[in-house]
Computed example of a mutant assay.
Amino acid sequence: MKKIGLIGGMSWESTALYYQHINREVSRRRGGLHSAPLHLVSLDFQEIADLQKQGDWARMTEILQTAARQLANSGAEAVLICTNTMHRIAPQVQAATDLPLLHIADATADAVLAAGLSQVALLGTRFTMEQAFMRDHLAARGIQCLVPDEPGRAEVHRIIFEELCRGQVLDASRQSLIAQVQQLAARGAQGVILGCTELTMSLQPGDGGLPGFDTTALHAMAAVDFCLS
């Protein structure tokens, strides 16, 4: 099996899901007591969150590039950034080593296109919903994204940072997220991308009446495909 390198800790709650998804799928496919050979660099999310608020993407790039180099030096054969938001600097992280970077939007686009959809809702942090990096990556594959209005974006962002990243899963917030999905369905969304790796802690595919695409699970399955290729 090939060794997978994970840049995690953003937040550790979703990194734990990556670990579970990858190992359970390797065990399912290989049987016995098989598990995945994983290398993990887990960052302090408080530092990253503070830099996000400051808009200091140059410093965040340095941190993630250093993590990628650590993974390369440890023997990892591919790199995953275990968060949607930090894919804003995926090209720079990719350039830090000779290792392939498995992009979360590629795994997501494959699933959306396989379902025959071309216009989907995108939920995530403000950075993911408001900046172009995720939407442009998907648009290049022929997928258009709809995002909530300003109050909706603020609420989704709040739920992620104030609750899910802290391990809190509240039913009232889950209902609020479902309402956002329903509003986007009314605007023409055919499915919904759970474009934050923590959102799967609250929303499940099918909530709000739309097929859902769990970026955490899809990214993890891409890692397994690489591991076993």
Rank of each mutant, 00 (worst) to 15 (best):
K2S: 11
L6R: 04
L6Q: 05
G8S: 04
G9S: 09
L17W: 02
L17I: 05
Y19D: 00
R24H: 11
E25A: 12
V26A: 05
V26P: 09
G31D: 09
L38P: 10
V41G: 03
V41R: 07
L43K: 04
L43T: 07
F45K: 02
E47D: 00
A49Y: 07
Q52Y: 05
Q54I: 02
W57R: 12
A58S: 15
A67L: 13
L71F: 12
N73F: 14
S74K: 14
A76V: 11
C82W: 03
C82V: 09
T83N: 01
T85L: 02
T85Q: 01
I89M: 13
A90E: 07
V93E: 08
Q94T: 13
A95G: 03
T97K: 04
T97L: 00
D98H: 15
P100T: 01
I104M: 05
D106E: 13
D110I: 00
V120T: 01
A121F: 10
L123V: 13
T125Q: 05
T128A: 02
M129Y: 08
E130L: 12
A132K: 15
F133A: 02
F133H: 10
F133N: 04
M134N: 08
H137G: 02
H137A: 13
R141E: 07
Q144D: 05
Q144V: 09
L146D: 00
D149A: 13
A154P: 02
A154E: 01
H157N: 15
H157L: 08
I160V: 14
L164M: 12
L164H: 06
G167M: 12
L170A: 13
A172H: 14
R174F: 04
I178L: 03
I178H: 06
A179Y: 08
Q180G: 07
Q180C: 13
V181A: 05
V181N: 06
V181M: 08
Q182L: 09
Q182A: 13
Q190I: 00
V192M: 07
G195A: 00
C196G: 03
E198L: 10
E198Q: 12
E198T: 10
L199V: 10
T200S: 15
T200I: 14
M201E: 05
S202P: 14
S202M: 11
L203Q: 06
Q204K: 15
Q204M: 14
G206I: 09
L210I: 11
D214A: 11
T215I: 00
T216R: 07
A217M: 07
L218A: 06
A222Q: 14
D225I: 11
S229C: 04
S229Q: 10
